[in-house]
Write a protein that binds this DNA or RNA. Structure first.
Lengths: 338, 338
DNA sequence: CTGTTAGCGCCTTCAT
DNA sequence: ATGAAGGCGCTAACAG
């Protein structure tokens, strides 16, 4: 059996209140007794029981992270930022991995009423108004990472400007002389309401328009996220009579599918086809993939910092922090062939 | 404020004990009162406070996972198996990510004395005898996943037979007619005491010996884990006067570095050089990499199952479960050129 | 079958 | 400055 606060009190010849006080560095304890208590604590190898502390404090000292597909490289990197930042905060982290819309809904429904976490980080998932309310009501603060929530209920959020990012990616291709530029994305109506594909599409369209290039709907293909599906879609694009000379993929994973399709079609990249991705996941460098770098680690880190700040000071103003994306040119984009 | 068990008892006109009994499905409660209590529970949207339960039960209802570099693809996949399996077990999961030996030691030291978890899954890390003792003493069961512990303190473990795997990978190359087969691995003396590289080396040597091919120490290079380092090592091998015609990399990540080096050297894979990896991470398929498939997801799943079993029945016999590796031939290996 | 009571280990007034 | 006491919400043992 591990030592309890009572054991310490007894051995030190003080009341348990005093021990509690030295543990929490609080209030005033005479230096003499403090030393004595500290000595006994060390001697007994005493560590306060977290469960008891939590119950007494009425706080769980844990934060939850709701994240879809935590195995995807981009999410993993965000998680790493979260984990690192939380490390010496005294908070535990509990991970809620979402792989289906039902699961998301269940977490949104259950977590607030469970008294399991003091606050929640929602990653890459856009809650609807109805989702937010239970958290508000249970007084569980939320911070959004890589997601934005437009409603009245203002939320702390770390957003990435996907519109601008999509625009810059497209501009890069335009500046290289491309005019026939296609865009491959997730389904715009996928059940998770991911906004990144939509926003990047908007940026893509803005860039085209600014360059006076009309948007062609047959140049925008959507499908389930993933390499294989993107491969299929790209093959479709490349079979077009006037096939695009450049393809912008909404993620690096999908860009990989595009590269495969190009290979299948006997097209050289970047000579015959330019390809640009999005995210700058680790493998992108290996592939020499031109892409939009996101500050994934940093976004997780900032999210935690915001959440910890809210936990400290519950009625601070909600903040929205924008993480910029940066063009990283490698070897899959080049001037359009005459 | 959320409803407490007392509120339920009052509204249902019963004692606390009765409510507790229906919650835990335990003992005997008359069907009438059970229905009544259930109704009030639903009506009040009551959920038992987990912290209070934990304190009362003297169990944390959470399990910890100690894992090095949880961002590496193979570990992520193991984690996925763990997370899935734990989902409806009623246990929470808390993740301890290890990135330095000091951190590992700290976790090994602190976790047992913290009363934070009921059991621990140690992934890909081989604890020393001194590490195991504190867990034993604190009565916190351990299950090893992808690691083995040879000492007297017999542990539950899910091991992968890396010796056999390394042997089969090498045999594959030998059967393709290769004689000059090199092996690139992690440093054998890296601080985490990972055993996989060592075991795969043993398998490699066994296969060579069985085929009557002498082991050449200049054909075994070791370096930090990672693509870049493997790239460097492979370049070194390929610069040898009698360069190998096949390279076995101790992981897919490292195999990627080998592929890069081959490209740099103007060698075609598999015509001029065969390459085989290990793990079968997701990207391997994309690369067409021949590799040894590990049942990563499954290993995590089995680990959790073992741990839950121990938690149920603390004095069950420790079990060792072996996960086989399977050769997956793709397009980076071929018959040795004449 | 069910109400009551005594903890689980800690924090926090409230006196002193 | 410090000891004593009450309470956090729940479970389990004990009477009925």
């Amino acid at each position: 059996m591990p030592a309890t606060i009572r054991d310490v009190a007894q051995q030190a010849g003080v009341g348990l209140g005093t021990v509690s006080r030295v543990i929490n560095g609080s209030a005033s304890v005479s230096d003499a007794t403090r030393q004595r208590v500290l000595a006994v604590i060390k001697n007994l190898n005493y560590v306060p029981n977290p469960t008891a502390r939590r119950l007494s404090l009425g706080r769980t000292l844990t934060i939850g992270v709701i994240v879809p597909f935590f195995t995807r490289p981009a999410e993993v990197e965000r998680l790493r930022g979260i984990e690192h930042t939380l490390l010496d905060s005294g908070y535990d982290l509990i991970l809620y991995n979402v792989e289906t819309p039902e699961q998301r809904d269940q977490y949104f429904r259950d977590i607030p009423r469970r008294e399991r976490v003091d606050g929640v980080l929602i990653v890459s998932l856009t809650p609807r108004d109805g989702d937010v309310k239970p958290f508000k009501k249970a007084n569980v603060p939320i911070v959004l990472v890589d997601a934005h929530h437009a409603s009245l209920a203002r939320l702390n959020q770390v957003v990435t400007d996907d519109v601008t990012g999509g625009c810059e990616a497209t501009q890069h291709l335009i500046e290289l002389g491309h005019r026939r530029i296609a865009f491959i994305s997730d389904r715009l109506d996928e059940p998770f309401n991911f906004t990144s594909s939509r926003d990047r599409l908007t940026g893509y369209q803005q860039a085209l328009q600014a360059a006076g290039i009309p948007f062609r709907s047959d140049y925008h293909l959507q499908g389930d996220h993933g390499r294989a599906e993107a491969h299929r879609l790209a093959a479709q694009l490349l079979a077009l009579p006037d096939r695009p000379t450049a393809i912008f993929a909404a993620s690096d994973t999908q860009a990989m599918g595009v590269l495969e399709a190009a290979r299948d079609a006997g097209l050289r990249v970047p000579d015959d086809l330019s390809v640009i991705g999005y995210d700058d996941i680790e493998i992108a460098e290996y592939l020499g993939l031109t892409t939009m770098s996101q500050q994934l680690y940093q976004s997780g880190k900032r999210g935690v910092e915001l959440l910890l700040a809210v936990l400290e000071n519950p009625d601070a103003q909600p903040a929205t922090e924008v993480m910029p994306a940066k063009l990283t040119v490698r070897t899959t984009t080049a001037r359009a062939a005459e």
